[in-house]
Design a binder for these strands. Sequence first.
RNA 1: GGAAGGGUAGCGAAGAGGCUAAACGCGACGGACUGUAACUCCGUUCCUUCGGGUUCGGCGGUUCGAAUCCGCCCCCUUCCA
Length: 306
Amino acid sequence: MKKIVVIVGPTAVGKTALSIEIAKRFDGEIINGDAVQVFQGLNIGTAKITNEEMAGVPHHLIDICDPASTYNVFDFKKDVDHLIEKISSQGKLPIIVGGTGLYIQSVLYDYQFPEQKTDHALREQLTQLTPEQLYQQLVQLDEAAASSIHPNNLKRVIRALEICLSTGRKFSEQSTQTSRIEKYSAYVIGLEMDRETLYQRINARVLSMIEAGLEREVRNLCERGMADAQSMQAIGYKEFIPYFHGEQTIDEVIKQIQQHTRNFAKRQYTWFKNKMDIEWFTLNPDQNCSIQFQAIMNEIALFLGK
RNA sequence: GGAAGGGUAGCGAAGAGGCUAAACGCGACGGACUGUAACUCCGUUCCUUCGGGUUCGGCGGUUCGAAUCCGCCCCCUUCCA
């Protein structure tokens, strides 16, 4: 089994800094594991790594999509599998770094996706129905899926129906097909931090994003007609829309971005703590980062047998 | 000094004699997650040894029964001096 290193954790804990140190020390290449950083032009708001910060370490899956286009787990899983193959074959260490639970999970546990793409015509039909009707239909077609999806979770109900209707197979079969066995020999590092401290860091980071010109970045994308694009639903972007329409003040926008980021960090913890097998390391921002990283480095060395 | 309005759970805010440990919103916490996932959705949220206990600025009073009615006091906001 190919060995890979994975770094996960909530937004703003400091994954990027660690990833660079690991890549340099173990001759690795970094694969972005973050759903929004794949888009070009979304830089400040996604806290995307800069060229200088990369320090010569090769980075993949960053800026690979036009902000008007779409990207999803299916694409990610396929791309990462190829990249791991490629990087490993060059004798280098693949390092996945990011905070998108589903994406990383799909790679580690080798999710099997049907080739079926989003069927817009079918979705159009489905949205004509009431949520109750949709759920009832799902109960008829796939009881197992219906029982695991809450009736109020319209998005999931529709997707499950879409799969059932267009493939003729049950949506719930998808998960039973998944091997549940890890595809790679992965050392998964989870970075965590005292909740209160993390929230303060998030608040401060949003403020510095504003200072760095986040508003200009978002306005630019909007002027290019991206307002309704998938990329613009990211935290730090969508919040500007009402402000641009004159319905909110910039202070309200900032507060919202901070709030949404904090809520997001908590959801990330929920995923990582409950769905993945992770080696957790607690970071103390008051202490020297390199020293704290040292313990992690030692573990990786053991894992790699170096 | 005078007049009016107001003080309800972490915050905002309903409730105007019993159906109220107190709607709703926010926050916080916990959880779910297989093609928009930085999405979407769910649960808990006065204390409790789960029997119960203590609440609606404070202290008294009316009543079978008070967050709701009465009196006094404290604090806040606006207006007049």
